[in-house]
Nucleic acid binder design. Structure first.
Lengths: 275, 275
DNA sequence: ATCTATTTGTACGTATGTATT
DNA sequence: AAATACATACGTACAAATAGA
């Protein structure tokens, strides 16, 4: 307990009175600043804990908390062992989507909200793929489709097919040359997938939906091969409209069933109680 | 050092050999699970550190690191003092955008990437406002415009005007009834704002750009008041096209200037070296 | 308004786990 | 197989913030 009273006092009063930034955040900011200053690149390693401790004059726990925070944000990844440490890491799309999901957890978008965007973006995405797909890509897409070209026999198969249908769209997003467009579309699909309404819909077998999706996707592939931009956009747009229409109907149906079962809750806004 | 050897040994071997999850992450997951299980609401407080320590049988620092991670993700916010602790918090849009920015830090979208989305979404956003704006909203928008209705006299004023121009779009996003659409548009604007190219462009006075923006925005407000959907969409779309066109030209110009100054780097992909 | 109690925030020392060489 | 270099975990002590008496 020799050097307990080092600097901790004049730290926050030095700037202005309401400098709320805790030491942890302060260090976090400094590390970030360090990264941009020194133009650190993707795989670069930043100093090890001990050095950071020395550099900032903070304790181990404080530094670790700062690093943990950055790790949670996907900025760095930490490895143990010799030559380990904190490395600048490329944020994973999946991770980013998880974080974004938190934003929309408490103000959940409606089906219509999601499709308002999808109707604009999915056609654009599909069109942007024209002329960019090689044989390999086409094969990948066709393989996905083949998973549900036949009606499912078991319930498990049914569900697998649903996932494959989504995979088709996800594959398209992956191939998109515009990273922004690909990400947003992917995120919208993800959002949809996690809606409890969707889960309910997906659980019960639905030959009509499967038929629809299949039909659209086969036609889409054809149009893509022919590099027919207008058709591609139109097919995808119609697909989106049909999907939206279908989901809205399902939602209404589920709501009616719910009301029948429990008429007391008729006044509540049941549609927002998803997830 | 009495109870140092409590449980730490059989922890990870109990499940399977490659249980990589660090204790911190494990606790983080458990806390998240707890939140959904008990259907915790927005302002709810989760147990305080001491209780979590007892519940998980972990040390203080470990629990704190887990909490810090969740705080960095915007899931909780932590307050000190009596009745303090970790509270379920609504994630701020600004925070979410910061996190998302990290994703696009290393695979930066181009001007065209950004405008490909904006051209589709901004008209949609503007149209979605029709019939939803009250006098107050209109006043807010007009006030923003009034900030740059006259040419700037000083350089500082010039920059302020640029920010006000962006504010106009941000205000529109805020008013959008579709949270997804509003967020994405807002994010795109943000992305644009942080492009170093943009910063360069914005720094030098530019009467033509100002004139353009002003022109479009005045017309847009009129069309919004008249609830003329087609006009609204068209005006915004043209605005986007003009903006994109302008920025691409600026980019090319800056690149040429750069090459003149430093012809050696002619081979490199200078346009991607933004930020 | 000051004090007090409660709860988070920071510091530090030590021991243990883990991956590289 | 052992040494090494690093993160991970634990525990205690004290500092700072804040709600409530």
């Amino acid at each position: 307990m020799s050097k307990t009273s080092t600097i901790p006092l004049d730290r926050k009063r030095s700037r202005s009175t309401r400098k709320r930034s805790k030491r942890t955040d302060e260090i976090c900011d400094k590390i970030k600043a360090r990264i941009v200053e020194r133009k650190m690149q993707l795989g670069d390693r930043l100093p090890q804990e001990a050095d950071l401790i020395a550099e900032f004059g903070a304790s181990r726990s404080t530094v670790r908390e700062a690093l943990k925070g950055m790790e949670a944000q996907g900025l760095i990844s930490i490895k143990t062992g010799p030559a380990g440490g904190a490395f600048i890491s490329k944020m994973e799309e999946t991770h980013a989507m998880e974080l974004l999901s938190n934003l929309f957890f408490f103000k959940q978008p409606t089906i219509n909200d999601i499709y308002q965007l999808r109707k604009k973006l999915e056609p654009e995405l599909a069109a942007s793929l024209i002329g960019k797909l090689d044989d390999n890509d086409f094969k990948r897409l066709e393989d996905t489709i083949s998973l549900y070209i036949l009606p499912a026999s078991t319930k498990g198969e049914e569900y697998q097919q649903r996932l494959a249908e989504l995979d088709f769209h996800i594959t398209l997003s992956d191939l998109c040359p515009n990273p922004l467009l690909g990400f947003v579309c992917n995120f919208l699909q993800n959002l949809l997938k996690n809606l409890s309404l969707c889960k309910q819909i997906y659980e019960k077998p639905n030959p009509v939906l499967r038929e629809h999706a299949l039909h659209y996707q086969v036609r889409l592939l054809q149009a893509l091969k022919l590099q027919d931009k207008e058709s591609v956009e139109e097919i995808m747009y119609n697909h989106m409209c049909a999907a939206q229409d279908y989901m809205i109907k399902c939602e209404a149906k589920l709501k009616r069933e719910f009301l029948k079962l429990d008429p007391a809750s008729g006044q509540g806004d049941a549609s927002n109680k998803i997830q």
